[in-house]
Design a protein around this nucleic acid. Structure first.
Lengths: 119, 119
DNA sequence: TCTACGTTTCAACGAGAGTTGATATATAGG
DNA sequence: CCTATATATCAACTCTCGTTGAAACGTAGA
């Protein structure tokens, strides 16, 4: 991920309604949520939400698929991890203990309770 | 970290000059960089940079200390990790494999080459 | 085909963010 | 004390972003 993409992603997340959308989709999991459901969850008018969803999609943070009359949005987990990686890259110039908290933060994720990683 | 803080942090990072400042400080390490050096690095006028540094500081992403005539800024690694944690919290609702890439992204950090973590 | 529903697009308005230039504060040295 | 350096503050302007309302598009069922 280059600076331009990261910039778009952070700018997208720096907006109340868009951040709530991403959080809702991250917790919702890969099944995602319909645009209408998101509109109720985030309490934003449909047309306005559509604008934000477009921006999030363009920033590579969410993906969409049509299912009948509904459009289902889901979090782009790959894009999110790329963003985290961009932010913390080269954080350990001779001082590994400094950015350890950042890694520990993600370790708190349930992902790591299994033996999928750190095997 | 609550939503309001995360929002301020993401909004702060969603600006070209501020993102470059944070990246410069993250790679610089805990020793930090003087405001003047940052101004040259990011190529922003001093008065303008001051405005951005204030915003980053208020967002909890950087800290400052005075050393003689200079003011030295450094990355607030704790704030950064809190932000990452906020973004990815509850990402594993029954699908641990989904957010694994995000953790793997941070694992690529040199921090994890030592046995400080995952012991 | 017609109607209902869900979602998207468009133009216009209002509010806020970023830049600039001038000015002010703080520290160090002569 | 006076000057030079480093950084911060302020007011003004410009421009972009987010919201709103009206209208269009796409899909499913009668």
């Amino acid at each position: 991920m280059d600076e331009r993409q990261a910039l778009a992603a952070f700018a997208a997340l720096g907006q109340e309604h868009r951040l709530r959308v991403v959080r809702a989709l991250v917790t919702a999991g890969p099944d995602g949520l319909a645009a209408g459901v998101l509109a109720e969850t985030v309490k934003v008018a449909g047309n306005n939400l559509s604008f934000h969803l477009k921006e999030l999609s363009h920033a590579g943070l969410i993906t969409s698929r049509r299912e009948g009359k509904s459009v289902i949005y889901s979090a782009a987990y790959g894009g999110l991890s790329d963003l985290v990686q961009f932010l913390m890259r080269d954080c350990c110039q001779g001082h590994p203990e400094v950015c350890a908290p950042a890694v520990a933060a993600l370790d708190a994720c349930d992902c790591t309770t299994g033996d999928t990683l750190h095997a």
